[in-house]
Design a protein around this nucleic acid. Sequence first.
DNA 1: ACCGGGATGTTCT
DNA 2: GAACATCCCGGTG
Length: 191
Amino acid sequence: MSERLPQGFFAEDPTVVAPRLLGKLVVHRRRAARIVEVEAYRGVGDPASHAARGPTPRNATMFGPPGRWYVYFTYGMHWCANLVCGPEGEAGAVLLRAAAPVRGVAAMRAARATARRDVELCQGPARLCVALGIDGSLDGTDAVSGRAVVVDDGVAGPEQPVTTPRIGISRGTDLLWRWTVPDDPHLSRRR
DNA sequence: ACCGGGATGTTCT
DNA sequence: GAACATCCCGGTG
């Protein structure tokens, strides 16, 4: 059975929370997917973070309390989903980059008509949002007890997650702040 | 398989 | 204007 995450799960630094999210389930609209790939973004001080230059209207949620969804719009057409982590005001977050479909697969296929194989349904941060029906209306909502939640269903994450540089960024590329389940077929591809 | 380019709009220089 | 935590499609090998 799925259990709510303990209070304080998201209170630690995003680089600590990120690997712990591997193996957890994202649940929304009767669909569920197991997280296999994440990236940590620190707030001010991380040049790749949306919060690097302080608060703006877009990143306001990042500066709020941990455990909430930060959902942003990019490239004129894509939503991406993060979990706010760390002390309030530090604007840390973990980006969900890929997941393995677990429940509601038919609904995911309907939402992701261009996916040719089920392995592609949540393979990438924007694809994951489409498959699960996540959009900007979720921004700022509670990820422990709200409409969309992250839960622990008792399946252990990897003992030794793989760490790599983050994908799709032009600054902070030296930091190994991407964590993946080793050799999982649902990982996003490029580099 | 790999690559290049277009889509589309918000944010920032 | 340019960049952007992306994806899709159509070219070529």
